[in-house]
């Protein structure tokens, strides 16, 4: 990879966000789009669940309904995530055979998380990688990622917690046994945000700029800020699927 495309930060709702990640993944896999780093946010807030998760086990649907929180099933595996408008989310799509991303799953997570860790360190956050797919500060999660490999490409998307709206956490039906394993009583004790560590807010645009630079450094590639292709702009069928009961409640 000697260059990649950047889709600049923009808010979207949950089905739009997941549909656009898939549209980009498909276009990259088909060789119609270059490797792409997309930066985005979630408005309204949403819970995303992993491809294999049972929705009723993971999500407090009543709380979500009452609080205007959307629920969406991801194309990627992994766990349930609460996304608030304070989060910076990234997605990185690259052709499956691109030599700059290791074929083995663990190696590829590390490779794509490395620029995120560098960006966090640049703003004064002592972040480190925790296998398989987390970035932590003081044993608390500040960023989590998930990957899917389909349509001839790899998509890795993940969160960067600039801030968190803790009042929305009851949206997740967190299992105590899972959290105890990692030494926390509940989700609030398991995660940490940039705002809490620095004592000030960092804007999504600011961290996005640093992230792009770090992706350039780590991949030895030049970033081109550009728009979506025509193919990627037209994805009503994808968006419809992510909004559908069939998809969301399939497990």
């Amino acid at each position: 990879m000697n260059k990649f495309r950047v889709i600049e930060f923009e808010y979207g709702d949950a089905p739009f966000n997941m549909a656009l990640d898939e549209a980009i993944l498909r276009a990259v896999g088909a060789g119609k789009s270059p490797p792409t780093l997309r930066l985005y946010g979630w408005d309204p807030p949403a819970v995303s669940i992993g491809y294999f998760q049972e929705i009723r086990e993971e999500v407090n649907l009543e709380f979500c309904h009452e609080n205007g929180i959307q629920v969406v099933r991801r194309l990627s595996g992994g766990g349930a995530v609460l996304h608030t408008p304070k989060e910076l989310t990234y997605s990185f799509s690259v052709e499956a055979n691109d030599p700059s991303v290791p074929q083995d799953i663990q190696g590829s997570y590390l490779k794509i998380c490395a620029p995120i860790i560098s960006a966090l360190r640049e703003i004064g956050i002592p972040a480190s990688f925790r296998p398989v797919n987390d970035i932590e500060v003081k044993k608390r999660k500040i960023s989590g990622s998930a990957q899917t490999r389909r349509f001839g490409a790899i998509l890795q998307h993940g969160t960067i917690l600039l801030g968190m709206d803790y009042t929305l956490l009851p949206a997740l039906r967190a299992r105590t046994e899972k959290l105890t394993e990692k030494g926390a009583k509940d989700v609030a004790e398991r995660i940490i945000t940039v705002a809490e560590i620095l004592g000030k807010e960092v804007r999504q645009a600011e961290l996005s700029r640093i992230l792009v630079k770090k992706f350039e450094d780590h991949f030895g590639a030049v970033a081109n800020y550009s728009d979506l292709s025509e193919d990627e702009c037209i994805f009503p069928a994808l968006e419809e699927r992510y909004r559908s009961i069939d998809w969301t409640f399939r497990r």
Partner: peptide, 15 residues
């Protein structure tokens, strides 16, 4: 049979 959870499978269709 249904296998659910927060694991990863590549490719997902394998499950």
């Amino acid at each position: 049979a249904k296998i659910t959870g927060d694991f990863f499978a590549h490719p997902e269709e394998g499950i």
